[in-house]
């Protein structure tokens, strides 16, 4: 495990692309900023892997961003764990975790978000959205919110869906082949994370 202490006002930004077993533990001191991206679209070996990010905001006014994008196919399995703790107030955290699952892929997301009694004026968001492309792919989500402060803004949400059939037909009616239409919709789903991580081209990273 890679443990790192970010000192006052320090910035840590890192994007992991197709890296197995990311395991990060970060302690943030006042006013520091963290932005972590994990993009997995080809796990190769091992086909089963897990990524874990633990962040503790130990000083006031910290910002934490965690963006995860996974495109799993075949028998690939990926677990993403995030543990975000706001120990003191005035901090912000935003997490967006997106999975696309095809074939027999298995995805897991485990997310803990804690806001300690002293962490007033915290703003914390955790969102997990998943797109399942086959009958046999599966996604499991376990997200847990523990809030012990009363003056905070916190949201969490998880949704798993399939490709929009109405949008597929609309595109086919314009002459776009079904496979191509599916690809456009999948890319559209993933684009949000690529934008947040300032990754330019979908083709370069995801195909």
């Amino acid at each position: 495990m890679d443990t790192r202490v970010l000192h006052k006002g320090e910035v840590f930004e890192r994007v992991f692309v197709n890296e197995p077993e990311v395991d990060l533990h970060i302690v943030q001191e006042a006013g520091s900023r963290v932005k972590i991206g994990i993009v997995s679209n080809d796990l190769k070996q091992p086909q089963t892997t897990s990524n874990k990010i633990t962040v503790e905001q130990a000083g006031e006014g910290c910002e934490t961003e965690i963006y995860v994008l996974a495109f799993l196919r075949g028998d690939e399995q990926l677990t993403t764990e995030t543990h975000v703790k706001h120990a003191v107030g005035g901090g912000k955290s935003n997490q967006l975790i997106k999975y696309v699952l095809d074939d027999n892929a298995r995805g897991y997301f485990i997310g803990d978000l804690k806001i300690a009694p002293d962490a007033q004026k915290t703003e914390a968001h955790q969102t997990n959205k998943n797109l399942v492309l086959s009958e046999t792919a599966q996604m499991r989500t376990r997200s847990q919110l523990e809030i012990y402060a009363d003056d905070v803004q916190a949201t969490h949400g998880a949704s798993t869906g399939q490709l929009d059939e109405a949008a597929l037909f609309y595109m086919q009616q314009r002459g776009i082949g079904k496979q191509k239409a599916r690809q456009l919709l999948v890319n559209a789903f993933m684009q949000e994370i690529l934008d947040l991580l300032s990754i330019d081209s979908v083709d370069g990273v995801i195909q």
């Binding site: 949008a167 609309y170 002459g175 776009i176 919709l185 559209a188």
Partner: peptide
């Protein structure tokens, strides 16, 4: 007409025109 978030009009139309 169906809304397709994340697919730009340009990308959509260029794909349709070129497929035809």
């Amino acid at each position: 007409p169906v809304e397709i978030p994340g697919v730009s009009m340009t990308n959509f139309m260029r794909t349709a025109v070129n497929e035809k």
